[in-house]
Structure formats: C-alpha cells, structure tokens
C-alpha cells in the first residue's frame, strides 16, 4: 500500500497549481524514495519534472512502486477545499484504482476526506540527461515572474541572452522592442535576493513567452529560480522546494529559419 502524510499540505497544492496549466492528465509515480512526475504538454515542446523526497513527509510508506493517474482539473477542484494550514494525507492500495485524500486541521478540528477515481494514463517518458550547461543563473523567482509577464506586451517571443554584461530578456513586436537586463547582484544580505550568473560561454536563445509564463505558476514554491542554458538545447527552469525536491521545466528553443 501507499500512504503519505505531509504536515504542510499546501506544498502539494502549490505543486498541482504549478503544472495544471501545462497538462491535463498526469501520473504521479510513487516509489520508496519519492513522489515524482514527468509529463509533457500536448505540443511536446515543454516538459515538467517534479520530485518530492520521502523526507519531506512526516510519514511515508510505499510497499511497491505505483503510478497514480490523475486528472489535474479534478485534483485542483479538491485542493480548493484545502485550508492553508491543513495536513494532507494520501492513501492508495497497490491496485491503485482510487486515491484517498484527507485534509486535517488540528486547530479547527476538521477532517475532510475525498476519494478520487484514478485513470490509466499512457504517457511517453523521456530520459533527460544530467548535462553541464554553459550558463547557470540564479535569481529571485518573483523578478523572473515580473519580467516574463511584463514582456508579453511587447511580443510573443523572448530572447534570453547571457553574456558577461548580465542576463538580458528581450521581446520585439509591432509596437517596438523591450529589453530587461539583470546584472549579477550579491549585495543584499538576503541570499534569496541575489542574482548570480555562472557563465562558461555566452548563450542566446529564443523562447515562447506563453510557456515561460506558465512556468511562473511555480513561483510560490520557491523564492529563487535557476535558469540553465546551452546553445541549441532546451532551457531548464528550476524551482527548488527547500532541500526536499524541485519542479523543473524544460522548454525547446525557437529556432530561426
């Protein structure tokens, strides 16, 4: 059987929110080590990879690896009923045809329980190699969210270039061009406000702003976001979840013909 108890249930709610605009049906893979998700959007240009270690849970038992096939719009409806401070409990039998969800709140004394029918989802899995990227940038996730949101008024494609000058986001459209440059900045006492740029060689790639905006739904999960780029490769946009896991997005670059 599978049983997991997460004191801060809100983390799981935020994970669901971070992927539900990209994919509809998803398998949550449960193993003795972690809960994980790998899925692509319907156009297969973006991929989400989520991992939440068993150490994130107060109680974690998984006798046999299993996949929980979920419809995210339905899961999201159930999580709307979860309170901010609720503890979440997930339970499934090895046959995995339904998932039990419980939201408990000690303060108010409430226990809400739901039974969700599971689906068999055929999903293509890709092997994503652990590549050394030419540029790695760490920046406040709220800044990244603001930049990709603001640039949407200029156009639908964002050029991200990493040079020794800094990290530049540019968008061009009918009304003109906008550029936002982020320089390395480690002046603040708070590490989460730092911008660090680790560049082996300059990289310049184009991406669909629509997708970059989808990815920023993970902003509440992490104060910092890590961007990794190499020439001609999908960008990696990683939101670490404390020391317990991550949500990573991969997006294929737009190539110029």
């Amino acid at each position: 059987m599978f049983e997991a108890r997460l004191a801060n249930g809100n983390i799981f709610k935020m994970i669901v929110e971070s992927i539900r605009e990209l994919v509809v049906d998803v398998n949550i893979d449960c193993s003795t080590e972690e809960l994980s998700i790998q899925c692509m959007d319907s156009a297969h240009v973006a991929l989400v990879s989520m991992s939440l270690s068993q150490s994130a849970f107060d109680h974690f038992r998984c006798d046999r690896s299993l996949s929980l096939g979920l419809n995210l719009p339905n899961v999201s409806k159930i999580f709307k009923m979860m309170g901010r401070d609720d503890t979440m409990v997930l339970k499934a039998e090895d046959s995995a045809d339904k998932l039990m969800l419980m939201f408990e709140n000690d303060k108010s004394g409430t226990i809400a329980d739901f039974e969700l029918k599971l689906m068999a989802i055929e999903a293509e899995q890709l092997g994503v190699p652990d590549t050394a990227y030419k540029c790695s940038i760490s920046m406040p996730s709220s800044e990244f969210q603001r930049i990709v949101r603001d640039l949407q008024v200029m156009g639908d494609t964002c050029k991200i270039s990493c040079t020794k000058e800094g990290l530049k986001f540019s968008a061009t459209g009918q009304i003109g061009t906008g550029n936002i440059l982020m320089r390395q900045n480690v002046a603040s006492e708070k590490e989460e406000d730092h911008v660090t740029i680790d560049m082996e060689e300059p990289v310049e790639l184009n991406f669909a702003l629509r997708y970059l905006n989808f990815f920023t739904k993970a902003t509440p999960l992490s104060p910092t976001v890590i961007l990794k780029m190499s020439p001609g490769l999908p960008i990696v946009i990683e939101y670490p979840i404390e020391q317990l896991g991550h949500v990573k997005y991969y997006l294929a670059p737009k190539m110029e013909e």
Binding site: Q125, L126, P129, K254
Partner: peptide, 14 residues
C-alpha cells in the same frame, strides 16, 4: 520566422 522542435529531438525516449 521561428520554428520549434519537440523535446523528442533533444531527449531520448525511455
């Protein structure tokens, strides 16, 4: 003019 390849052209199928 831009074109976008699917992730299959970058990553191997498992």
């Amino acid at each position: 003019i831009f074109f976008q390849c699917t992730l299959r052209s970058y990553f191997q199928k498992k």
